[in-house]
Nucleic acid binder design. Structure first.
Lengths: 175, 175
DNA sequence: CCACGGTGCTTGCAATTGCAAACGGAGCGG
DNA sequence: CCGCTCCGTTTGCAATTGCAAGCACCGTGG
């Protein structure tokens, strides 16, 4: 197995590195690995251990999990959104509340898709700075400037918690 | 580095294995690794690569990330709630929408704390080892049976989605 | 022209991973 | 008692990781 399909991870690292405008040696130093080894990793000649992978991620200032996913070491979570899986996994809210959150989130997503089909928006926001070739900044949908008064939760109250004690106002804390 | 602090991960694996009532050889076969190697891993004599770790996780039917965390390869997320971190990390929604989701989620949490310290609703969902010393059990909250018509989102729309297309149909429930 | 610092890549080599084979015990049936 | 099967462990060994040293190349400037 001298030629595993780890090319993907190598390409990804190189991509991130050149994207961050740092040299191979710089990243190697930042990650605490040797330059030649990093070179081999980037060209898919070596399969780095998780420890090395973790250090490289740190050196690149990206999430370790992103690298693990690229390396095929962990299954990619729902490409749709981590938010949904997190909500589904949460056990601190009731099933009903869970459903509310999921529906709201999905409505937001749908809303954004309809408003701005440029579903990218993913470029920055993560750790890597990413100087985009296409100068288009994050194209904000027009409804991003919505006033959004703090009463939006009150509107939700009669539906979410009609049972006597269900007070959802974030201001009135009588607890 | 013949004796790194990987004892933790080894102990963890052995704990999980014995807890699952399977023999070392069985797990080795299920994970696709050799029995002696697994033995050495469990006793901290060897530091398994991420690939092996991943297969062991599969064999144990636990999340790979749980093992990576134990191995110190990734940092543990907020124990409080993955939902908040996931929402904050999401880049497919606008900042405003993010804030709405966070507020709603927190209001749910507060609501639950005030009404009843319910924290079950969802048994297992994560491979959660850690036999809890405090046996605090569960109590269903009364407001869990709330009707919650599907119009709850419409109330939110004038604030969150004034852009004409607020099409919110909760039919898409695959959870 | 040739030294100097920069880039990435190739070459041996120590150390490690990961495995096949073999080892000592424990339990069961003949 | 002996054979059989299971358990976890120990022992060499091929293959691999990861590195120090050195290579070829490029741009600058003394």
């Amino acid at each position: 197995m001298a030629l595993p399909k780890v090319g993907s991870i190598g390409e990804y690292i190189r991509e991130q590195r050149t994207h961050a405008k740092i040299s191979l040696r710089q990243l190697a130093a930042a990650a605490g690995v040797s330059n030649p080894y990093l070179s081999q990793i980037e060209r898919g000649l070596r399969k780095p251990s998780a420890e090395i992978l973790n250090q490289i991620a740190k050196g690149l200032h990206i999430s370790s999990q992103a690298l693990y996913v690229q390396a095929g070491l962990i299954e990619e979570r729902e490409p749709d959104s981590d938010v949904l899986t997190a909500i589904r996994a949460d056990h601190l809210i009731t099933e009903r509340q869970r459903q509310v959150l999921i529906d709201i989130y999905e409505s937001f997503r749908k809303e954004n898709r309809a408003g701005a089909p440029d579903e990218d928006a993913q470029t920055s926001q993560k750790a890597h700075p990413a100087p985009e070739p296409h100068g288009g900044d994050v194209v904000s949908s027009p409804n991003d400037e919505v006033p959004l008064p703090e009463g939006y939760l009150a509107a939700l109250r009669p539906y979410a918690a009609p049972a006597g004690n269900g007070n959802v106002t974030p201001e009135t804390k009588e607890g």
